[in-house]
Amino acid sequence: MSTTVLNGTVPRPAVRPSSLLWLAWRQSRTALLVLAAVLLLSTAALLAVHFVASGPTAAMRAAGCYASTAWDRQSCSGLAERLHLSADLYLDVLQPFLTFLPLAIGMLLGAPLLAQEFERGTHRLVLAQSVTPGRWLAARTGLPMAAVALITGVLAVLSSWVWRTDVLHSPLLFDPPFQGFTYPALGLMPVSWSLFSFALGLAIGLWRRRTVSAILLTGLLGLVSMGVMRLLRPALYPVLSGFQPTDRVINQFMQPTNAWLVEYGGVLPDGSRTSGFCRTAAECDSVVGWWGDYHPASHLVPIQLIESAILLLLTAALLTWTFRRIGRPGN
């Protein structure tokens, strides 16, 4: 079979991608099955939220329950209770779950992936086969990353759809898109944060080479990254500035519905600005109007796109570092 070439090297066929995928699948099998179960359960829960909510919403609309005169009607409050039950599942359980899912992916899937190989020394088993470290790592990380992207992608689409159809347009519910657990459960956020968190865990695992410390450090740095991004977020896109003359009734700038009021304060007769609420009656009386910097709801998509671009750049940087480092002998 084998041929000898004049220069003395025996050509050997390369390892097929399907072979590397088999190994990657075998090694990530448990984690991927758990992810699939998470996807099934969350999908079921999100669909349940939608179908449980859509019934009462339609019934209330038909019965005219949304008119303020109907608020004390027995039939309406019963329908509202059912609506709130499903909304609570989405707002209090599924949104926080989607917020912290990326962190769990980084800690439980990303961090142990290489840390465990190095802790057990099994990377030397793989490197003793006829495959380069880079190709092995590409399959080893590519398969779980593709699964993470797919699963978080499906959940992000479902979550955004439920929020838009059942929460945003429901006259009884109020859940502005920029707040705490809402923003990370919408649009691209579950996908880009999960990929970033996975790459963060992978790099920390290669750096620490100890599973437990890699998991804890990934959790900690993941939380810090979320905190830092929360602080940077208002500056990712130019804010809109507004001025409202005082009406002596409302002592604050009133942003449009679902907008994110970033900064606000009073405007004094000399044109100078104060920051925050007025604290004394004299101060409130001296104010001629209110100023506010805010992101309207329409800024949600551009801000999320910019945030995702930053996260994906960081992901690419972390992966590049990981691949370079593992390709160097002596690791």
């Binding site: 050509p11 050997r12 090694q27 099994t122 990377h123 030397r124 003793a128 495959v131």
Partner: peptide
Amino acid sequence: PELRSRVGFVAQDKPLY
């Protein structure tokens, strides 16, 4: 990569999955 296919290695602690 070609060299890797020509050299076999068993480490002292016999790492296996």
